[in-house]
Design a protein around this nucleic acid. Structure first.
Lengths: 179, 179
DNA sequence: AAACTAGTGGGACACCTGTTCAACTAGTTG
DNA sequence: CAACTAGTTGAACAGGTGTCCCACTAGTTT
């Protein structure tokens, strides 16, 4: 009964924090990491610039928060994928098709992580997630499989026409031994 | 005998052009594509800013010229690799170890190519090169193999300790059927 | 009610940016 | 030799940047 009103200062603050992250992700999807500035994000989120610096004092804070958040979100979305060639191929096709922007953002994270150790755990979340789903494979086979998924995604991003699930399925099949 | 002196204007111009590309590549290796500006490149090459804009009127010209040139250079360097698991594994280990900076630059090109179609041919040169060396494989197997190489490289870039040739060899072996 | 404090937002600072320009030097050509 | 022109350079322009600061509003706590 001493429950505070549901949108007090703190609640609205948290919401704005998330809105800033979402706006940053949209900017990254549209213009890449290099398009992110306190001002471009503030414009995208329709808030004053100082609001962005209030919640994320430096650009780095904002970028790191956005990319780790995005990686967590993406990992959640992978939960629905079943360990069958068809399901995996469909996931890949969607990643380089409808979710292309998001996938691009994910690989910008990869590259940023190569230069900034603090981003590496977030970048590797994807790999550990894979191992939790396909962990029953032989170690070497799994490593090759996981690497191939990354390669198929990144190559799909620079193709003139994004590959379809039908085109990818035989490749995935070959990498996934039946047992 | 009307041979012009070996370092006339034009010759020195061409040399400076190449020096600018090399300086740009060093900047990319050190600070990433986002660290490239006419000024940072000019500083690195120890020439005035206007020299950079004289040869490459816009930053885009400079970036595109550098990345396509770098891709061609890297392709040449791949010529020595033999189509055996050991040789491939050694190449990978060097790419994520001693040549780490260069490999990073190559993947920045990939990501840039995802957003700029004019860079795609340069980015795909790597894949067509692979197919010229490993073209005897079955199509689906080759696609998986080529994708896995990209994945192994990019994952090697975000590892805390770059994988060694010994660690990668079994994985490569599995992806390369004996015939 | 009074005191406190999280959040707001406009404005400013110093700095770096891409690109242009006009004056100049020195190879090249007729 | 004179005419030409590729290359060189410092300076400048207009605009974007990260970050800080201060006056302020409105939930929250005592």
């Amino acid at each position: 009964m001493a429950r505070p009103p549901a949108d007090g200062r703190r609640a609205r603050g948290e919401r704005r924090r998330r809105e800033l992250l979402a706006a940053t992700l949209r900017v990254i999807e549209r213009d890449g990491v290099s398009g992110v500035s306190h001002r471009s994000v503030a414009r995208e989120a329709d808030v004053p610039v100082s609001s962005s610096t209030y919640y994320y004092a430096t650009l780095d804070d904002l970028l790191i928060a956005t990319l780790t958040w995005s990686a967590r979100e993406m990992a959640l979305g992978f939960g629905a994928v079943k360990p069958t060639p068809g399901s995996v191929a469909r996931f890949l096709a969607e990643a380089v098709g409808p979710n292309r922007g998001r996938t691009l953002a994910e690989y910008e994270l990869y590259l940023l992580a190569a230069r900034r150790p603090e981003l590496r755990p977030a970048a590797r979340r994807w790999i550990t997630l894979l191992s939790s789903v396909f962990g029953t494979m032989q170690p070497a086979a799994f490593l090759g499989f996981a690497a191939a998924l990354d390669g198929l995604l990144i190559q799909g991003l620079i193709a003139d026409f994004p590959p379809t699930a039908e085109q990818m399925e035989p490749v995935v099949s070959l990498l996934m031994p039946p047992r």
